[in-house]
Design a protein around this nucleic acid. Structure first.
Length: 430
RNA sequence: UCCUCGGUAGCUCAAUUGGUAGAGCGGGUGGCUGUUAACCACUAGGCUGGGGGUUCAAGUCCCUCCCGAGGAGCCA
């Protein structure tokens, strides 16, 4: 018999089908057993009645354990008592592979235990919902840019030097030379947009900072678009449009997953243009007015960010940060070299910064000067400076942290659940 | 690196002023024809993170080390 996927089962009412999957849970009576079977596409309740099956099948059913792999055949019936509204009247059952003492039981577990068993944890309902949403977010991001005529131009992971000089990098041996795992693809996108106009890269990035918070991973995925002839205003609009597109797509395609996560959907439905925008100086005034201990000119810490987004139900755009606290490649106001053409997107509900972007410095001499004043090795940036030597042009882009965006959309506290295999300061396994 | 909290059965957690180490889940055995994290009965399961100390007596108090968590800094 052909395999049927549980996601298609509603259309097969009355038919006898074969499901190949795993036993999620078993509730057993003396002559009646209820099998919760999952196959990756969904979950269905199988009903096994002693007097309706052969002795071999009933004997085999005595060996069922949580997460053993099984192939079952049965008739699809509508029944209000079944968790999904449909159930399978089982006629045949084969145990493909046994599973002794599956570690993840029906009661709660601690974070460390679940992360140690991440390879099994991803079988569970909640993790399934999160990772399905991750899949749709990634697809939505790509569709958004592809539909606008962008080219996906991925950046290398091995890089010869730091892009911003501030973050700690993972160092590796590269045939006797030092190489570093990429912490941003941005420098490679700038030449890319000179070649193709509109480009983006999407890949893993690595930060060796010893951050131990629910918002940090040492390996995370970043989406970085870069557009020729786009200014800071255009950059803010692009980020806004993209976030709205992603949210709308998730609402269209992942309602049941959001329900599984108990996500308040109204919090996502209100994410529509325009997003609130405030100038850095205005943000400083707000913090001072709120009586928060903050020195104007500094970068915002987590408590500052939370105080600023308080009261907003959409991402907050803070723009025109002081140049001194931002990366060397950011362009400054024409009449104010102290102020950078930069923007941060702060997600509501305490999920923090999800996008950082800017207009890039396009003047060769100013950029050379900035590299020098940031104590960066100028020879390492010669290739990057070529973008300014051969037909310079205004351009802008941003970086979006995928996992923080997913945490926000899903409404989950820990970023580590938003990636299949999280890499944290104290976690390299499994 | 700093601050705070934690480590007891396979897992999640209890254990009163220091006084015999307990429950639920999971495992095993038996029962149950409509279960919804099913239920009922019985059962096995412990170097209380390691080391040192105080005490008649330490899971509990002190010192030290190890491991973990989330917050700061830094960032997405």
């Amino acid at each position: 018999m052909h395999q049927t996927y549980i996601s298609d089962i509603a259309a097969r009412e009355g038919e006898t089908v074969e499901i190949r999957g795993w036993l999620y849970n078993l509730r057993s009576g003396g002559k009646l057993k209820f099998l919760q079977v999952r196959d990756g596409t969904g979950m269905i309740q199988g009903v096994l009645s002693k007097k309706e099956v052969s002795e071999e099948v009933w004997t085999a059913a005595q060996e069922l354990t949580q997460e053993c792999s099984i192939i079952v055949q049965g008739q699809v019936n509508k029944d209000e008592r079944a968790p999904s509204g449909f159930e399978l009247w089982l006629k045949d059952l084969i145990i493909v592979g046994s599973a002794d003492e599956y570690p993840i039981t029906k009661k709660e577990h601690g974070d460390a235990f679940l992360l140690d068993h991440r390879h099994l944890w991803i079988r569970s309902r909640r993790q399934h919902a999160i990772l399905r949403i991750r899949h749709q977010v990634i697809k939505a991001m790509r569709d958004f840019f592809d539909d606008l005529g962008f080219i996906n131009l991925d950046a290398p992971i091995f890089t010869p030097n730091a892009s911003e000089g501030t973050s700690t990098l993972f160092e590796t041996d590269y045939f006797g030379d030092k190489a570093y795992l990429s912490q941003s693809g941005q420098l490679y996108m700038e030449p890319g947009c000179a070649a193709f106009g509109k480009v983006y890269c999407f890949g893993p990035t690595f930060r060796a900072e010893k951050s131990k918070t629910r918002k940090h991973l040492t390996e995370f995925w970043m989406l970085e678009p870069e557009v020729a002839y786009m200014d800071l205003r255009g950059c803010m609009e692009l980020g806004e449009d993209m976030l709205c597109f992603i949210i709308r797509r998730v609402l269209e395609r992942c309602k049941s997953e959001l329900n599984t996560l108990d996500r308040d959907i109204s919090k996502l439905e209100c994410i529509q243009k325009p997003f609130p925008r405030i100038h850095y100086k205005e943000a400083c005034e707000i913090l001072v007015d709120k009586g928060i201990d903050f020195t104007p000119g500094d970068d915002f810490g987590t408590p500052d960010e939370e105080a600023l987004v308080e009261g907003y139900d959409k991402p907050l755009l803070i723009h025109h940060f002081p140049a001194a606290i931002k990366a060397f490649y950011m362009k400054c106001e024409a009449n104010d070299p102290e102020t950078s053409l930069s923007v941060d997107f702060i997600a509501p509900e305490g999920f923090g910064e999800i996008i950082g972007g800017s207009q890039r410095e396009d003047n060769l001499d100013i950029l050379k000067q900035k590299i020098k004043s940031h104590d960066l090795p100028s020879e390492a940036f010669e290739w990057y400076l070529d973008v300014r030597r051969y037909g310079t042009f205004p351009h802008s882009g941003f970086g979006l942290g995928l996992e923080r965006t997913i945490a926000w959309i899903c409404g989950i506290r820990h970023i580590r659940e938003t990636i299949p295999y999280p890499r944290l300061m104290h976690r390299l396994k499994p």
